[in-house]
């Protein structure tokens, strides 16, 4: 099958991808990623309208109480594996303009990584160079990596009211080193609010992966 410019067929293809993610059908999701490359489709659109849509629907199903942690996690893994196929291809084709570099991590003492991983994946999919340091990462290490990678944005996740103070520590370290203005600092996680963002003197917060992408684009004027 050749897709060409047939919008209808394209939309159908995106929906198939989105459904594969929601149905947690890994084989199908990966097969569709490979087909998107063979068919020479616009991979950014494939990621955003197909895989991104699927992961957003999973997020909605979680909110609604139809999906739970295992589904959320599986969906994230399938998304990641599909991205592992699509992102190198995007880079090869030069279609991917690097919009900026983001260092992202869950703060020390906190092992919640799902939300942070989804944010990282969505940022990669949207053309950012993402360094995901994982969970339980000391503030110093996050800052040092940001310096080393010449990052534009530092994203710090915290899911616990006891660990979210680490988010402020990032800003404090940057201030101490006199390099605060070199980075935009964004924070996220269930307990994070606007007033906490102000308290931290962070540059913004987002309550979903989609919002996080919008926020980073806005902060970097992209």
């Amino acid at each position: 099958m050749f897709f060409g410019d047939n919008k209808l067929v394209q939309e159908q293809f995106y929906k198939e991808i989105s459904d594969a993610i929601v149905n947690l059908d890994k084989e199908r999701a990966i097969e569709l990623a490979k087909r998107a490359i063979i068919e020479n489709m616009n991979l950014l659109e494939v990621i955003e309208k197909g895989y991104g849509d699927g992961i957003r629907r999973i997020g909605d199903l979680w909110e609604e109480g139809d999906f739970f942690l295992p589904e959320l996690m599986l969906g994230g893994t399938i998304m990641q594996e599909s991205m592992d196929i699509l992102l190198p291809e995007l880079k090869r084709s030069g279609e991917n303009i690097n919009l900026g570099t983001v260092v992202i991590a869950t703060i020390e003492g906190d092992i919640h990584s799902i939300g942070k991983t989804i944010v990282g994946t969505m940022l990669s999919a949207n053309g950012f160079e993402v360094y995901d340091l994982g969970a339980d990462v000391p503030a110093e290490k996050i800052v040092n990596t940001a310096i080393e990678k010449n990052a534009d944005v530092i994203g710090v996740s915290a899911l616990l009211t006891t660990t979210m103070f680490g988010q402020k520590k990032i800003v404090d370290i940057l201030e101490e080193k006199g390099i605060r203005s070199k980075f935009k600092v964004i924070i996220g996680g269930a307990p994070v609010t606007k007033s906490w963002t102000e308290e931290c003197q962070a540059d913004g917060f987002a309550s979903s992966a989609v919002e996080a992408v919008k926020l980073v684009k806005k902060l970097l004027n992209k």
């Binding site: 609604e64 109480g65 139809d66 999906f67 739970f68 942690l69 295992p70 589904e71």
Partner: peptide, 13 residues
């Protein structure tokens, strides 16, 4: 448990 529209569930479902 968390409360969902379909009743009380653990986050593992």
């Amino acid at each position: 448990y968390k409360k969902t529209k379909r009743g009380f569930f653990t986050i593992m479902g």
